[in-house]
Simulated scan of single mutants.
Amino acid sequence: MIVIQYVARFDGPKSEGLLRWGSESFSASSGPDGAGTIPVGDYDIEIDGVVENPADEYCAKDGNKRICFFIPVEPHAQFNRDGFGIHPNANAPELFGCLVLAAGAARSFWKKWKSTTKGNLPTVLKVKARETNSATTVKRQKQPTKRAGAPPNRKASRARRS
């Protein structure tokens, strides 16, 4: 089983992240219209249902050329939604939960897809929420701890007693 992952930051009905396949990553997004972004979870990639040169809403313009494909994915869980897929971003006003790739990323992804033998194509898509980046977490400076009942300066206390 070959797995690709969409690891993204989810912000309400929209998500933005990377579609990772092996050592390569492709910029992708999902949502915000309709029922919103693709839900977190596992999906089967329907490699026998892939369509090259489908309708215009699955095409993006890359310079003077168009890149068009639709790769259907089926969720393992029930979401009361269907029609999920991976395709180029046609800048359509409504993105109903598919993973869309900008033209350049779509061209690179599709080139890799077409050059991969059927037995080595990914069969599972894992959609995950990106964890918080620890580099952006504000670090707290360690404050000295005061012990209850202990004098702040023992030498000064002893000096006063003599």
Rank of each mutant, 00 (worst) to 15 (best):
M1H: 14
I4T: 15
F10P: 03
D11E: 10
G12C: 04
S15A: 15
S15V: 13
S15L: 09
E16V: 10
L18E: 12
L18Y: 09
W21L: 07
F26N: 15
F26S: 15
S27D: 08
A28M: 07
S29A: 14
S29L: 14
S29H: 14
S29N: 12
S30T: 13
P32D: 08
D33C: 01
D33S: 04
G34S: 13
G34P: 09
A35V: 00
A35S: 01
T37A: 10
I38Y: 00
I38F: 00
G41N: 00
D44I: 01
I47F: 04
V51W: 03
V51D: 07
E52H: 09
P54K: 05
R66P: 02
C68R: 13
C68H: 14
F69Q: 14
P72Q: 06
H76V: 12
H76P: 03
F79V: 13
D82E: 13
D82C: 05
G83I: 05
F84E: 09
F84A: 10
G85D: 06
G85M: 03
I86S: 11
H87E: 10
N89H: 07
N89F: 07
L95I: 06
C98G: 06
C98T: 06
V100C: 01
A102S: 12
G104L: 03
A105D: 07
A106R: 08
R107D: 15
K111M: 00
K112L: 15
S115C: 07
S115N: 14
T123C: 06
A129G: 11
R130V: 03
N133C: 11
N133L: 14
N133M: 11
V138N: 06
K139L: 09
K139H: 05
K139V: 10
K139A: 11
R140E: 05
Q143F: 03
T145E: 08
K146S: 13
R147F: 04
N153V: 02
N153Y: 03
R154T: 08
R154Y: 12
A156N: 01
R158L: 09
R161F: 01
